[in-house]
Design a protein around this nucleic acid. Structure first.
Lengths: 129, 129
DNA sequence: ATCAAAGCTTACGTTAACGTAAAGGTAAAT
DNA sequence: ATTTACCTTTACGTTAACGTAAGCTTTGAT
């Protein structure tokens, strides 16, 4: 709510190191203001970091995550760029669909394995009686 | 259906290099039979590879992917191990839940951005008339 | 018989995403 | 005043997950 954060504020909130946040800046993903040398992060910066980390949790590279984050602030005004952006969105959407499918299958598989485990445990208990 | 595959068979089917498959063997994730020096992959090997690659698409490390794959063939018979396995399953399940949530949010965001894009394009077309 | 395709091992190279250490500046608390 | 707790930059180190190249063997096809 305060609209400005220190680097360690964000580091604590999102459970990353300050090194990581500075690295993201080196890679052009963040560009906080400065008071003297010290970095000052706005709510916009904080949101960008949040989006980057969300991408990372899905296994995206920093470059891919950056692409997605940059979609939120187009900046490009001509029709071709807009169309290119829409195409990128479509690509990412399909990747997400695939991941979602993978997750569903994996969840189902895990349930199956758990079931077998529990049955095996029941057998073991019978043995010990 | 043939129950045995060459390394390049699998490489083509799953769109990876043979180097990748051999690397997974080095890391103990696969252990194909041999005819002389040549590797021969069974359906079981093929399934393991498929599972590993599914894990990779979700951003898991090879080690994590390996853990999951090994759940499918418990091998351990004592109760403690079974309980440990069930705990691991629960952990992975929660990670998958989180990823699924991330995906839903991201899909929603992408739709939002696309909407804005399309509106901007409509404006541009009006200008050009 | 030889030639191309595919297989093998060994080993060094590469890249992303940080970790870690050194050396220093600033500001508040004791 | 000096300790504590931040902040900074620079720079070298590390690890996972392969890529790539060299050199050799095996095998099916012509």
């Amino acid at each position: 709510m305060t609209d400005h954060y220190s680097i360690s504020d964000l580091a604590k909130e999102f459970d990353v190191t300050t090194r990581t946040i500075r690295y993201y800046e080196d890679e052009g993903l963040l560009s906080p203001l400065r008071r003297g040398q010290t970095r000052i992060y706005s709510n916009r910066d904080r949101t960008r970091l949040k989006l980057i980390l969300r991408g990372r949790r899905l296994g995206l590279s920093l470059e891919e995550a950056g692409q997605i984050v940059n979609m939120y602030t187009p900046g490009s005004d001509n029709v071709e760029q807009l169309q290119a952006l829409i195409d990128k969105i479509e690509q990412h959407r399909h990747q997400l669909y695939r991941q979602r499918k993978d997750i569903e299958v994996m969840l189902k598989d895990l349930s199956e394995v758990e079931k077998i485990c529990r049955q095996a445990m029941v057998e073991k208990h019978k043995e010990n009686q």
